[in-house]
Design a protein around this nucleic acid. Structure first.
Length: 272
DNA sequence: CTCCAGGTGCTTG
DNA sequence: CAAGCACATGGA
């Protein structure tokens, strides 16, 4: 299919999603009930293994990207926009997203990826695509074996996952899209192990609440450096939401990915 | 061996 | 409120 204002690499590699890997120019993605692969050449997006509507929805292709971009006045964001043009916020499965970000506390992306894949392998359904194999993430209530949860290497987060798996139902989750941002945040934060940062991640990455602005240590540092100076995380969030406006979450994703890239590049330099 | 990692919850000033 | 700390695990 033909796509505009979309960059597959920026979108998948910006840290919002963990269940993908790259092989032979294809990105292999596992989400919901699907295991599919996608690749992009210029404005052509090719996919195999899942219906078009699934892929399109997941990749955020029905969002009005022009409208998002035109909402920003800030020079730094405008600059990053050009370098990361086509980076979109995904529309993830809410349950998977919640579990993944439960695993994210005091961790790092490679380890989170390992944890989530391991949970899927223990509890999910096997999927095959050509020579590739993956496992879908279990549904709420399907992670019954506490020992298996622990053996996924999730550490102290195992208790959170156990409780979550017992309390959350797909019925509840299906109601949450209708909630206001504040009400959704409240629901999420009422869960043990979910604070404001994780709640914002789920609101943003799974529920398309683009006003959400997750503040982690990276964003905190970046925002202090470029905008606020030394302040509390809740102040960073408040500032960002009023300064960046209704698509603050997009600004966050641009800043996060750009910030991480620069660090990565400078480390590569140091190694030479 | 020590330190740190897309935080959170609990306990103290 | 804010600061301090424990929490499991794995990689540097």
């Amino acid at each position: 299919m033909r796509v505009k204002n979309f960059h597959l690499g920026h979108t998948l590699e910006s840290g919002q999603f963990f269940r993908y890997y790259k092989k032979d120019d294809w990105y292999y993605v596992t989400t919901g009930d699907h295991f599919f692969r996608v690749r992009q050449e210029e404005e052509i997006l090719k996919k195999e293994g899942a219906p078009l509507r699934v892929v399109k929805r997941f990749l955020g292709l029905s969002q009005d990207y022009e409208h998002v971009l035109s909402s920003f006045e800030d020079p730094l964001i405008k600059n990053i926009q050009q370098q990361l043009h086509g980076l979109r916020l995904l529309e993830q499965n809410s349950w998977e997203c919640l579990c993944a970000f439960i695993c994210s506390s005091a961790s790092n992306i490679p380890k989170i990826t390992k944890n989530v894949n391991s949970l899927a392998q223990s509890f999910g359904v096997k999927k095959v695509l050509g020579n590739e194999v993956s496992y879908t993430f279990p549904r709420p209530g399907e992670m019954k074996d506490d020992e298996k949860i622990k053996s996924a290497g999730v550490g102290y987060r195992a208790a959170f996952l156990q409780a979550l798996n017992k309390t959350i139902t797909e019925d509840q989750l299906s109601q949450w899209p209708q909630l206001s941002y504040d009400a959704l945040l409240e629901k999420l934060m009422s869960l043990h192990g979910v604070g404001e940062k994780i709640a914002d991640c789920v609101a943003l990455f799974a529920f398309q609440r683009f006003e959400a602005f997750p503040v982690d240590v990276w964003i905190q540092r970046i925002m202090e450096q470029h905008y606020t100076g030394p302040v509390r995380p809740w102040q960073v969030k408040g500032f960002a939401q009023s300064y960046f406006g209704r698509y603050a979450g997009y600004a966050q994703q641009f800043l996060y990915h750009d910030g991480r890239r620069k660090i990565f590049n400078s480390r590569v330099k140091l190694l030479r």
